[in-house]
Design a protein around this nucleic acid. Structure first.
Length: 283
DNA sequence: CACCATGTTCCTTG
DNA sequence: CCAAGGAACATGGT
């Protein structure tokens, strides 16, 4: 369920649930997910440690734990299908549980169907990340500087986590539509006002998604659809709010909400991009 | 069988 | 060294 907004909502939800909880035991069901950390090292390090804080950085979750006088980080990433929830120890475990942290009466479960996610002591991935799109450093000037030397399509650049940390395939299409910028336009060809519109659009779509996600109850568990609902709101409910949340993503051939032109799907970098060929035209 | 899916990392090529 | 393109990772849905 992961792009920046989904991770942000998850972090806010999780924070009070794990604060000051102590790890009694660690179960690693899929060693790949803790790479490059080894299971004995993770178990030994986490055993007896207490959760101190939880922050989001891009699409990563940064847990801080303490043990004795020492404090250390654990880095989480949901990949494509990861979920994390706190449940009672008596609840059934989901089929694709990759990590289980026993917290006493409760436990923290990392479920991940495709096992692309991570839960590791290795924090080196963080050093590669670009600025936070909701932070002060994400300005039109910054974005212009990041785009000006690249011949890659602007859509591809938005997915580059070393430029902006947290934008994924869904919100990249949404932001470009909102800014009326053609996804295939080479990054260096954007005009200053397009860069400014894009900068604002990225912030707006992410903030609105966080606000939307905050209204969805996250009573997640193995049988809950709440996160699918958050992510694929259009398919999951009938309320207008849900229907209208994503304006172009996964709407191939449906009429554009602005001009009724059918939305197009193209492939860029091996991934789908959705856009309105009329509203997002180069000129 | 085919193709599609919210992401990152590694390898190759230029 | 860098930028860019593509495959790999793994499972499930349609």
């Amino acid at each position: 369920m992961p792009e920046l907004p989904e991770v942000e909502v998850l972090v806010r939800h999780l924070r009070p649930l794990i604060q000051n909880k102590r790890v009694r035991a660690v179960h690693v069901f899929r060693p790949r997910v803790i790479r490059p950390t080894k299971a004995p090292q993770l178990e030994q390090t986490l055993h007896g440690a207490k959760f101190i804080s939880l922050e989001r950085r891009g699409k990563f979750l940064l847990f801080t734990l303490s043990k004795g006088r020492k404090t250390f980080p654990v880095l989480g990433h949901l990949g494509m299908t990861g979920r994390i929830y706190v449940q009672l120890g008596s609840q059934p475990l989901p089929k694709h549980t990759s990590i289980l942290l026993d917290l006493g009466r409760e436990r923290m479960v990392f479920e991940d169907t495709r096992y692309f996610g991570r839960f590791t002591l290795d924090t080196t991935s963080l050093s590669q990340l670009g600025v936070e799109p909701l932070g002060e450093e994400f300005t039109p000037e910054y974005l212009r500087a990041a785009l000006k030397r690249s011949s890659q399509a602007v859509k591809i650049k938005l997915l580059d986590q070393t430029v902006v940390a947290g934008v994924g395939n869904i919100y990249a299409s949404e932001a470009l539509f909102r800014a009326r910028v053609p996804p295939g336009l080479p990054a260096r060809k954007l005009k200053p006002d397009q860069v400014q519109n894009l900068c604002r659009a990225i912030r707006a779509v992410l903030i609105e998604a966080i606000e939307f996600g905050s209204t969805v109850p996250l009573n997640h568990g193995p049988s809950s659809d709440s996160e699918k609902l958050f992510y694929f709101g259009r398919a999951a409910g009938s309320a207008d709010y849900y229907e209208e949340r994503l304006l172009v993503y996964d709407r191939q051939s449906q009429p554009c909400i602005r001009c009724k032109t059918p939305i197009k799907r193209i492939t860029q970098g091996g991934r789908s991009t959705f856009f309105c060929p009329a509203c997002q035209k180069a000129h």
